[in-house]
Design a binder for these strands. Structure first.
Lengths: 214, 214
DNA sequence: TCTTGCGTGTTACTAGCGGTAACTCCAGTG
DNA sequence: CACTGGAGTTACCGCTAGTAACACGCAAGA
């Protein structure tokens, strides 16, 4: 029951845990989102049960793995959002940061976005969004907070900021996912187009002359 | 090999197929996205192998099921987009149509969005977006087409329209998913907030006085 | 009428998954 | 020395997607 001893054990356990997470990272990077617990255990040089002792179940491992990347990504995004520049530049920097991240490690982010959430022995029904993609939610909430803190939106601004936070994150995610699959343009062009959208160019554009009907 | 005979058989097969799809619909509506092939077969009053004879594998059944709802939803969206009203009203009507649909049948749309895509014996690697959520993609492409047809965006307008199509659909989807989970406001308020975002209110809003630093 | 197909359906199985129970092994302590 | 507790193993359970092989019914051809 000595404190130093307990600390020693905990340090060892933490180191193991980090090793396991790194092994899981490698497997996910290689096999994609359908990485199995067996494969991860094998990569770590051990067997399944100790993986389960460390992380509880697959969603626990997923959560731990997700937290690492989510934290790292959110830090980058915060840095971009906090840069000393005007709003447009900050928005573009944030979009570019996210897109650069998913471009650099597509499988990791696909794993984070589509955890396959196979929890067979659990609740079911109308709990839509309960176990939903935490990365997108966290990004949405953080962005909402930034928007609410920085912008003067008048009454109802808090709710507006949350809607916008989740909406913008979803826009970024979907456009990024599509862009990653088809690569129809450069990252910079994508960033500019999305920022233009947020800047109201859709509403400002003129109707096409000779259009269909009206 | 008579033609009428073949037609008779095909009609019967088509009717069976429709029955099976309706049974699958019921199960998905009841059990959520993790509906098993066994459960679907049982609901239809048959057993698994004939399900597999009709649809190949689970993704085949998913694709057939998805197509029905996707087509229905896209028709509603097209109607909203084609309504004789100004642009803002059309955008709001489209958003509202989508949100009303996911509000009416949350499980169905969760099934469509998160098909769990467990294709273990297949390709893997960098094919991000290859088997990706077809509903979102189709909506994005359709919206892109409408934008490109109706708006005068100058040179590079086609690419811009596609980016915007996928981006707006993603915004709609993410915001809707979050809203379904938390229900922080009415549907009408959500629609208004999202339309405001597209109308550039984010860019136009003033900085908060007394903000953090600058 | 008997037989030959063919489509429809079944039972019974494989392989692999997430997850667990129960056992072994080894370090440190009295 | 005996003992206790954590690390790790084998061997299993129940479930899934998917399949092989067999049985029934019903039309056409001799």
């Amino acid at each position: 029951m000595d404190t130093t001893q307990r600390t020693e054990q905990q340090r060892s356990a933490d180191r193991r845990r980090r090793e396991l997470l790194e092994a899981a990272d490698r497997v996910v990077l290689r096999d994609g989102p359908q990485a199995s617990m067996n494969a991860i255990a094998a990569e770590a040089g051990i067997t399944k049960p100790i993986l389960y002792r460390h992380f509880g179940d697959k969603s626990g491992l997923y959560a731990a793995l997700a937290q690492r990347h989510t934290d790292a990504l959110l830090n980058s995004l915060r840095a971009a959002l906090d840069a000393p520049a005007d709003r447009r530049e900050r928005v573009e920097a944030t979009l570019d940061t996210y897109l650069a991240a998913i471009e650099a490690r597509p499988q990791v982010y696909r794993f984070l976005m589509h955890p396959a959430e196979g929890s067979p022995g659990g609740e079911q029904g109308f709990d839509v969004g309960k176990h939903a993609i935490p990365l997108l939610r966290r990004m949405g909430e953080e962005l909402a907070q930034v928007i609410e803190d920085r912008l003067d939106l008048g009454p109802g601004g808090q709710q507006l900021a949350r809607v916008w936070g989740h909406g913008i994150v979803g826009m970024m995610h979907a456009a990024g996912d599509w862009w990653l699959g088809e690569r129809p343009c450069s990252r910079a062009e994508l960033v500019r187009s999305l920022a233009d959208l947020l800047w109201g160019r859709l509403a400002a554009a003129g109707d096409k002359v000779g259009g269909p009907g009206f």
